[in-house]
C-alpha cells in the first residue's frame, strides 16, 4: 500500500528563538532549520513499514517556499520514494494546510497518512486531525505503536492516563508521538541517491482552494522572565526557605 507523509520545515529544536523587536513575530533569519522532529519519526515509521513489506511506496509532501525542498530531500535520503512540494510563500493556518493535503490524498489515494503530532514551532497539534476530518478517514493520534493488520491498523496511543489501543479501518491518518521509533541517520550514499529521486513542485494556487487566512497574528512577545533565584547550601536551608520564605510547604 501507499503511504503519504506530510512533513514541515521548522526551526531546529535546540535553537532558542528570539522575538522580533517590533513584536510582529519570532525572528527566523539566519536560524538553523530542520525537519520537524515528529515528522522525522513519521518518515521513519513509513520506511520501517516499507522494509517490513507492508508498504510499497512512500510519498513525502511539504507545504512551503523553495527552502522546504531541503527537508523533502532529507526525507528522500531517509527512504521516501518521491516528494511533492506545494509551493507557497505564505505561512498558512493548519486548516488551509489540511485542505491542500486533502487534495493530495484525493490524487494519490494513500491507505495510510502519517504525520507528526505537532510542529515544534506553532505547537498546534491540529493538521492530522483536520486532514482525517476532511477526508473522512479514521484517526490514530499520538501513536507510540502502529501495526497494520489486513484492512485495519491497530494504533497504540499515548493518552493522559497511560496507553490506549484503537483499531482503525483503513484508510487512516496516524500522528506520531516521540516514542514511536528512533529515526535513523541518512547515509552519504543515500543522500546522493536522494538527489535523483523525483520532486514535483506544485503551486498552491493551482489547487483551487481559498487560502484566505483564518487567524490573524496580532503580536508576539517574549514570555515573562523568571526572577533569578538563589543557591542554597544544604537541605536544611532548602526546607527552611520553602517553609518560611516561599511558604509552599508546611
Amino acid at each position: 500500500m501507499k503511504v503519504l507523509v506530510p512533513i514541515k520545515r521548522v526551526i531546529d529544536y535546540n535553537v532558542k528563538v528570539r522575538v522580533k523587536a517590533d513584536n510582529s513575530d519570532v525572528d527566523l533569519t539566519n536560524t538553523k532549520m530542520a525537519i520537524n522532529p515528529f515528522c522525522e519519526i513519521a518518515v521513519e515509521e513509513a520506511v520501517r513499514l516499507k522494509e517490513a513489506g507492508t508498504v510499497t511506496e512512500i510519498i513525502v509532501v511539504s507545504v512551503g517556499d523553495k527552502t522546504c525542498q531541503e527537508q523533502l530531500r532529507t526525507a528522500l535520503a531517509l527512504g521516501a520514494d518521491r516528494a511533492i512540494q506545494i509551493e507557497t510563500d505564505e505561512s498558512l493556518d493548519a486548516l488551509n494546510i489540511a485542505k491542500l493535503l486533502q487534495k493530495v490524498v484525493e490524487e494519490e489515494q494513500p491507505q495510510l497518512v502519517i504525520l507528526g503530532k505537532q510542529s515544534i514551532d506553532s505547537d498546534n497539534n491540529q493538521t492530522g486531525q483536520m486532514l482525517a476530518a476532511l477526508t473522512g478517514m479514521s484517526q490514530g493520534t499520538f501513536a507510540s505503536e502502529v501495526v497494520v493488520d489486513g484492512d485495519k491498523v491497530n494504533v497504540t496511543r499515548e493518552v493522559d492516563g497511560g496507553l490506549q489501543t484503537l483499531a482503525l479501518t483503513l484508510p487512516a491518518v496516524v500522528t506520531t508521538d516521540l516514542r514511536l521509533n528512533e529515526p535513523r541517520y541518512a547515509s552519504l550514499p543515500n543522500i546522493m541517491k536522494a538527489k535523483r529521486k523525483p520532486l514535483d513542485v506544485k503551486p498552491a494556487a493551482d489547487f483551487g482552494i481559498n487560502l484566505t487566512a483564518r487567524t490573524s497574528l496580532l503580536k508576539v512577545t517574549p514570555p515573562a522572565e523568571r526572577q533569578a533565584g538563589i543557591m542554597v547550601g544544604s537541605i536544611d536551608e532548602l526546607i527552611e526557605k520553602l517553609k518560611t520564605e516561599a511558604k509552599v510547604i508546611s
Partner: peptide
C-alpha cells in the same frame, strides 16, 4: 508558541 519561548496573541 515555540515551546513556550514566545507568546502569541
Amino acid at each position: 508558541i515555540y515551546a513556550g519561548n514566545a507568546i502569541a496573541t
